[in-house]
Amino acid sequence: MARPYLNKTDRKKMLLDTAASIVDKRGWGALSMITLAEKASVSRQLLYQNFKSVGQLTENTADYMFEDLYSATQAVLSDNDNDIIQAIREAQAVLLTFPPGRVQALWNIISHNSSKEQHFAKISRRFRRLISNLYTPHIMKLMNLDKEQAGQTAWLLMMSFWGAQQLVNDKSISIEDATKLITSHVEWIVIGRQAQSSQ
C-alpha cells in the first residue's frame, strides 16, 4: 500500500513525530537514520533531504520535543505574571504531566555537559539558557535581584523541578506531594530573600 502524499512541512512533522516516539521509548542512542527510515517507512534518501546528518536529526528532534514544554511554561508564566508562586506551581504541573519518556529524554539533553558529544552539549546550553530566561524577569521583580543573580536562581529552581519529576518517575513521591514540596521550596526562597532585602 502506497504512503499518502505529504507536503514538505507535513512530511517533516511526520518524521519528527516518529523520531520523537523512538526517543521516548528507547532513548537518544536508538535514534539513527536507519531506525527512523524503518520506523517511518521511508527511504534514507528522503531522510537526507530533510536532515543533512544524524547531528541535525538529533537537534531538530530535541527542538521538536522541547517546544511543547517551553510553550506551555511560557503561557503559564505570562498568565501569572504577578504571582511567581502560582506560576511555578503551574509550571511544575506542566512538567509533571508530560509523558515520562519525553521528560527523561529532555532531561538527558538538558543535564548533558560532556565535551565528547558536541551536538548534545550545544543543545543543552541552548535549552538551559531558554529555560532560565523564561523565569529570570519574574525572579528579578519578585526578589529584587540583578539579572545575573536572577538567572542563577532560576536555574537552581529548574534543577529542583527536574529532580521532583525524577522522584515522581521513580514512584518515590506522588505528583501531589511533589507539587507541594516544590511550592514550599519556592516559598522558602522567596521569604528568605524578602527578609534579607528588608534588613
Rank of each mutant, 00 (worst) to 15 (best):
R89E: 15
Y135E: 00
H138E: 02
L156W: 06
L156Y: 08
A91P: 02
P100M: 02
R44D: 03
P137E: 01
S172P: 00
L16C: 08
R11D: 02
M158E: 02
I175T: 11
M159S: 06
G163S: 12
I34Q: 09
L156T: 07
N80E: 09
W28P: 11
K52C: 07
S43R: 10
I189D: 06
L31P: 12
F161R: 04
Y64W: 14
K25I: 01
Q49E: 09
V186G: 02
A195T: 14
D170L: 15
T35S: 15
I123P: 00
V23R: 12
A87L: 07
S160M: 14
D177V: 02
S41E: 15
V186P: 01
E117P: 03
N80C: 04
K116E: 13
A91W: 03
P137Q: 04
A178P: 06
P4S: 06
R126I: 02
K141Y: 01
Q56V: 14
L31Q: 02
Y70S: 01
D24Q: 13
N113M: 06
R128N: 13
T35H: 07
D81W: 02
E67A: 14
A87R: 04
F120M: 15
A164I: 00
E90F: 05
N82F: 04
V190C: 12
H119E: 10
L181Y: 11
W28K: 13
L156M: 14
L145E: 08
S184E: 10
